[in-house]
């Protein structure tokens, strides 16, 4: 369906459409594709989880039926909670399920990145500072702060050493 959307001419693709707008259109489609992927992946995880849960509950219930003595509600709860805890633990440890979870999480990050890129390209069109511009600035600030801290520590170390009459050996062992 999304492939068709890609070939469907959007409103902006009329005469005079710039390359930049075409790129933005492709970015939207890419984002939609990622959302679809994410939905499919999470739905798969949900189904796997639900199946496991139903199996666990069915097994636990059959144990209750077999049990000759009348169980207290607390005993039933404990058995039930232990069964679910052990079952989910086993499911989460399964390599296939764990990799599915990791994949879905990775797609979430892809969605976030794609939407950030989209916002970024929109900001660039109207000359507004973008996230990557701000990050560059943060890096500059970090490096300046780091240098300042190091200089002040050097100064402190020198004054401590001179007041104690010892020489600070700056060579690495």
């Amino acid at each position: 369906m999304l492939e068709k959307l890609n070939s469907f001419p959007p409103l902006s693709m009329v005469e005079g459409t710039t390359d930049r707008e075409l790129i933005r259109h492709n970015e939207y489609v890419e984002l939609l594709k990622l959302y679809e992927q994410l939905y499919v992946q999470w739905f798969g995880i949900y189904i796997d989880f639900l199946r496991t849960l139903m199996t666990i509950i069915a097994t636990a219930n059959s144990e209750f039926v077999k049990s000759p003595a009348t169980l207290e509600p607390r005993q039933i709860y404990n058995t039930w909670i232990d069964a679910i805890a052990n079952g989910t633990d086993a499911l989460f440890r399964e390599p296939v399920f764990a990799s599915k979870l990791a994949k879905a999480f990775s797609t979430m990050l892809d969605v976030k990145k794609a939407s950030d890129d989209l916002v970024e390209s929109s900001y660039r069109m109207i000359s507004i500072p973008t996230k990557s511009d701000v990050r560059k600035l943060y890096k500059e600030i970090y490096l300046i702060k780091k240098k300042l801290r190091e200089l002040s520590e050097d100064k402190k170390a020198s004054s401590t050493a001179s007041s104690l009459g010892v020489r600070v050996d700056n060579t690495k062992e």
Binding site: E150, A157, V166, V168, D169, N170, K172, E173
Partner: peptide
């Protein structure tokens, strides 16, 4: 016992 920086005491600083 006063501070007596020994060899290697200022490793972090020497790297800066």
């Amino acid at each position: 016992n006063k501070a007596t920086p020994r060899k290697g005491a200022a490793i972090l600083k020497s790297k800066r």
